[in-house]
């Protein structure tokens, strides 16, 4: 399978009065066409920022990005417009990401109008096709967002993202604001669309059960850095990084006869402002030693399984 998305040493820093926020700090990965990469981590770890950088909603501070083999790090005007048609974004909160003063039709049609490829009649037809595709009834085309429930609003966001036939979509927690039964409907829809159009997704979420369900590969992020990266199957069978282990143990299973043994972490996520060198997770890690203060990189511990932890072999008896 061909690589569609590639990030090389991508960084995004934000200035703040108290110092530089290292939101995304030297992250590299690839996503193959037609697959889904899950990006997991807690609030504030930089996963949304990374997603936004990939579609040029933020401009990265340093590093390179490639789309379909071509450098897409710095784009302007026409090139950016073309890039955006291929790279779309589904927002987390369907309550705040839609313009409350525009109807469903206006919202779905906007990207089509901007593309300039459709006349008025074609716009109508295309709009109805998109609404049908994501399962919004035709009668709702003149409704405003406040008249729709959360699941339908998210479908509007999906229809809009699909309007220009993109190849890559960043889904930023697309189901976390929805009820479980609606969440499942939307997940099924995203998977059906992927099958039908060969879409490539980056699925940003904090919900590990969702990520297992939808992803081919998974990257775990902590404070702006990747701590573990491998296939979904391998990650759930043999997680190697202490943070991933704690994260997975914190998922509450509905299997009441085999409760998971929770690994409790000390304290909370530390500040991303001017972080010290070395492992950023060390402050909360049960295995941390002096050694962890040394700078470290992602290393291939097993074929296709990358971990950033200096004690990984010791902890896992590898």
């Amino acid at each position: 399978m061909a690589t569609l998305i590639e990030a090389k040493n991508l960084k995004k820093y934000f200035p703040s009065p108290r110092g530089t926020v290292h939101a995304v700090d030297d992250v590299s990965f690839t996503i193959d066409e037609g697959t889904t990469m899950g990006l997991v981590g807690e609030s504030g770890c930089g996963k949304s920022t990374l997603g936004r950088c990939l579609v040029h909603l933020h401009e990265s501070t340093d590093g390179q990005m490639f789309f379909d083999g071509k450098d897409a790090t710095h784009l302007e005007k026409e090139a950016l417009k073309e890039f955006r048609a291929n790279n779309q974004f589904i927002f987390q909160d369907p309550y705040s990401s839609l313009n409350p003063r525009r109807t469903v039709k206006d919202t779905v049609m906007e990207p089509l109008q901007l593309s300039g490829k459709y006349n008025r009649r074609q716009l109508e037809i295309e709009c109805i096709r998109l609404m049908d595709l994501v399962g919004i009834e035709k009668r709702l085309r003149l409704s405003y967002p406040h008249e729709l429930d959360g699941g339908r609003r998210q479908r509007v966001g999906i229809a809009r993202a699909l309007a220009l036939n993109p190849r890559f979509i960043v889904c930023d927690e697309p189901v976390s604001a929805l009820d479980v039964s609606i969440q499942a409907q939307v997940l099924n829809l995203l998977m059906d669309l992927q099958d039908e159009y060969g879409l490539t997704y980056m699925f940003v979420t904090h919900d590990l059960s969702v990520v297992r369900h939808i992803s081919d590969t998974i990257c775990v992020m902590y404070l702006g850095q990747m701590v573990e990266k491998t296939t979904s199957k391998e990650l759930f069978a043999n997680q190697l990084h202490p943070y991933t282990k704690a994260l997975l143990s914190a998922i509450l299973s509905t299997d009441i006869h085999h409760p998971t043994k929770r690994i409790l972490l000390k304290g909370e996520i530390t500040s991303p402002i001017n972080p010290p060198p070395g492992c950023r997770f060390a402050a909360r890690c049960n295995y941390a030693t002096e050694q962890c203060k040394q700078p470290l990189t992602l290393e291939e511990v097993k074929p296709g399984h990358f971990v950033s932890c200096c004690r990984v072999r010791e902890i896992n008896n590898l």
């Binding site: 699941g151 039964s181 499942a184 969702v210 297992r212 998922i251 299973s253």
Partner: peptide, 23 residues
């Protein structure tokens, strides 16, 4: 049953969720 079917279970591999349809 629908609620349980809507949950992606971490301990199982399920290809497709079986949610409660409708609202």
């Amino acid at each position: 049953i629908g609620l349980f079917g809507s949950l992606p279970d971490i301990s199982k591999d399920v290809d497709r969720l079986s949610p409660v349809e409708g609202l």
